[in-house]
Simulated assay, not measured.
Amino acid sequence: MLELINITDECRVTIEFDDYVPLNVEWKHSQGRYNLPLIYWRTGDIRKSLIEIGIDSISGVVCSMTLVLSSDNSKRNDILDMGEVMRGCPVFDISSFNVKYIDYVQSFSVIVLNNAVLINFSDEVAFRNVGNNDVVFSFDKEDRLQSITVCNLSKEDHAKIKRTLNID
């Protein structure tokens, strides 16, 4: 599982919802360029569910996130309150990563709420939230990634993600 080791300054974020790729997020950091190649941390069962997080190969800062496939999708008519959110971008521990792709096989769920999309990797209670614009990463007490939430969805994006994930 990805572990938080630091938090950098906030940066510009681009969020896209699409009919083919349900969700794509890119972070545009002030240094402009990432150290290539990026490291791609991927999770899901890798066949029916897959999420990919691009990480700078030197600094460990998050660069991108793509929800490619999801098989455990649901809808709740709730409005999500994230509580206290520390502002900034997460930096992950990549010290043990020695290849470009890290596959961490585990299930995850996607929950579409009235105002957000929650990608949940664990049932553990979140201890810390780190947010940059409308994307919030939640971590447990050991700073392991628990969930990623995209907040403040427009009506159009809400309808598109529900349609793409085949949720009523």
Rank of each mutant, 00 (worst) to 15 (best):
M1S: 11
M1P: 06
E3R: 10
L4S: 07
I5Y: 13
D9G: 10
R12T: 13
V13L: 05
I15T: 12
F17R: 04
D18H: 11
D19I: 14
Y20L: 09
L23F: 05
V25Y: 00
V25H: 01
E26F: 08
W27T: 02
G32R: 07
Y34F: 11
Y34N: 13
Y34E: 08
L36I: 13
P37E: 08
P37F: 08
P37M: 07
L38Y: 01
R42P: 01
I46E: 05
R47G: 01
S49D: 09
S49P: 09
S49Q: 10
I51C: 07
I51S: 02
E52M: 07
G54K: 01
G54S: 06
G54Y: 00
I58Q: 14
V62G: 00
T66E: 12
T66G: 02
L69F: 11
S71G: 11
N73I: 06
N77Y: 12
D78S: 15
D78N: 14
I79F: 14
I79L: 10
M82K: 12
G83V: 06
R87A: 15
G88P: 03
G88A: 05
C89P: 00
D93W: 05
S95H: 09
N98P: 03
V99R: 13
K100Q: 15
I102G: 00
V105P: 04
F108N: 03
F108C: 05
V110M: 05
V112H: 07
L113F: 12
N115I: 10
A116Y: 01
L118V: 15
L118E: 15
N120L: 11
N120D: 12
S122N: 03
D123K: 15
V125S: 09
A126Q: 02
V130Y: 00
N132R: 02
N133D: 15
D134K: 14
S138T: 07
S138P: 09
K141Q: 08
D143I: 04
D143W: 06
L145M: 05
Q146R: 08
I148Q: 02
V150T: 10
N152R: 13
N152I: 07
H158N: 09
K160C: 06
I161Q: 00
R163I: 02
R163G: 03
T164H: 12
L165N: 07
I167Q: 15
I167R: 12
